[in-house]
C-alpha cells in the first residue's frame, strides 16, 4: 500500500488499521467542526508496542522508590548494620567465647567484611521480610484503597500486566532492601573494623576482591529468596481493598511462619515453609561453594511463586473492582 494514498502525513500514533473517526460525525446541536483535526487528534485503534507495554513496569518501579514509605523502610534497613557494628565495637570483649549470638558476629572484629554477612543474617528472619511484606501487601490493595486501581484498569493497564508490574517492582524492592543492608554494612565495617582477605567457613582464605564478589552474589540470592513472600503478599493484596489490612496480614504471616519454623514438633512441615532455607546463603561462603541448600531454597521460592502467583492472578482477573 503506497503512502501516497494516505492523505495526512502519516501520524505516529495511528494504527496500521486505523479507523479514525470521521470529522463528519452527525452531532446535532453541536457547532460544526471548524477545520480538519490535527493528525494527533484522530481517535482510533492504536497498536500496542513493546515499549508501551514495558512503560508500566518502569513507571511502577520508579513509583515504588518515590514513595516516602519506601525510602523510610530502606533507611531503617540501612540503620540496622550501623547499630550492629557499633554494638559489636563497644561490646567486643563480651562476644568472645559466648556460645549464642548470630553467626559471623565473632569474626566481625577481625574483618569488617563479615559485618555484611552478619547484618544479612540478622535482617533476614524478620526485618527484611517485614519491609517486603509492607511493599508487596500494599501493592494492589493500596491502589484499590485510593481508587487509582480503577483508573489503571480502564487505561487499560491489563490485570495480568499490572500484576506482573507489581511483582517486578516488589522484587526490585527486595533487591534494593538487601543492597541497603549490605552496602550499609560494608561501609560500617570498613569504618569500624579492619578490612582484608577473608577466611571462609571452610578454612580457605580469599582476597578482598573475591570476598566482595561473594557479598554481591549472596545479596542476589537473598533478594531472590524473598520471591515466595512477594507472591504471598501480592495474593493477600488482591483479597482486600485495604492496604493496611493487606500489609498487616502479610507481615503477620511472616511472623507466624517463623514461629512455626521454630517449633520442634512441626518438623514434618518445616522443610516446606518459605523461611526454612533462607539462611542457606551461608553455604556460599565455603570453598568450593556449596549450592545444594541454595538451589533447594530457590526451588522452594519458585514453588511458592507459582502457587501464590497463580492464586493472585486468578483472583485479580476475576474480581469485580468496586472500589
Amino acid at each position: 500500500m503506497s503512502q501516497a494514498e494516505v492523505a495526512p502525513p502519516a501520524p505516529t500514533v495511528s494504527a496500521p488499521k486505523a479507523a479514525p473517526v470521521s470529522t463528519t460525525v452527525a452531532a446535532p446541536v453541536m457547532e460544526p467542526v471548524m477545520e480538519p483535526m490535527a493528525a494527533s487528534m484522530v481517535a482510533g485503534v492504536r497498536p500496542q508496542t513493546a515499549a508501551g507495554f514495558l512503560a508500566l513496569f518502569r513507571n511502577e518501579i520508579t513509583l515504588t522508590f518515590r514513595r516516602t514509605r519506601t525510602i523510610a523502610l530502606l533507611g531503617l534497613l540501612a540503620a540496622l548494620p550501623v547499630l550492629l557494628g557499633v554494638v559489636v565495637k563497644i561490646q567486643t570483649g563480651n562476644l568472645h567465647g559466648g556460645p549464642g549470638g548470630p553467626a559471623f558476629i565473632a569474626q566481625v572484629t577481625q574483618n569488617g567484611l563479615f559485618l555484611v554477612f552478619a547484618a544479612i543474617t540478622v535482617a533476614l528472619p524478620v526485618f527484611l521480610p517485614m519491609t517486603v511484606g509492607v511493599v508487596a501487601g500494599d501493592s494492589i490493595a493500596g491502589e484499590a484503597a485510593t481508587g487509582t486501581l480503577r483508573y489503571l484498569l480502564v487505561a487499560p493497564a491489563g490485570r495480568t500486566r499490572l500484576l506482573a508490574a507489581k511483582f517486578a517492582a516488589a522484587m526490585a524492592f527486595c533487591w534494593a532492601a538487601t543492597l541497603a543492608v549490605a552496602l550499609s554494612a560494608l561501609a560500617t565495617g570498613a569504618a569500624l573494623f579492619p578490612m582484608g582477605g577473608m577466611t571462609l567457613l571452610s578454612g580457605d582464605t580469599i582476597g578482598l576482591g573475591g570476598a566482595l564478589l561473594r557479598a554481591v552474589l549472596i545479596a542476589g540470592v537473598v533478594a531472590l529468596s524473598l520471591a515466595g513472600l512477594v507472591a504471598i503478599g501480592l495474593f493477600v493484596s488482591t483479597l482486600t481493598g485495604s492496604g493496611i489490612a493487606a500489609m498487616a496480614t502479610t507481615v503477620g504471616l511472616v511472623i507466624l511462619v517463623q514461629i512455626l519454623d521454630s517449633l520442634p514438633q512441626l518438623q514434618a512441615i518445616q522443610p516446606w515453609l518459605f523461611t526454612d532455607h533462607w539462611l542457606t546463603f551461608a553455604d556460599l561462603l565455603r570453598e568450593p561453594m556449596y549450592w545444594d541448600g541454595v538451589l533447594h531454597n530457590l526451588g522452594l521460592q519458585a514453588l511458592y511463586l507459582a502457587v501464590f502467583g497463580s492464586a493472585a492472578w486468578a483472583r485479580l482477573t476475576s474480581r469485580d473492582i468496586t472500589a
Binding site: T12, S40, Q48, T49, A51, F53, A55, Y151, A157
Partner: peptide
C-alpha cells in the same frame, strides 16, 4: 498523568 499514560500499552512513550 504520566503514570496513567504509562498504564496504556498503546501509548507511545516517545510522545508521552
Amino acid at each position: 498523568l504520566v503514570r496513567y499514560d504509562c498504564a496504556d500499552p498503546t501509548a507511545d512513550p516517545r510522545t508521552r
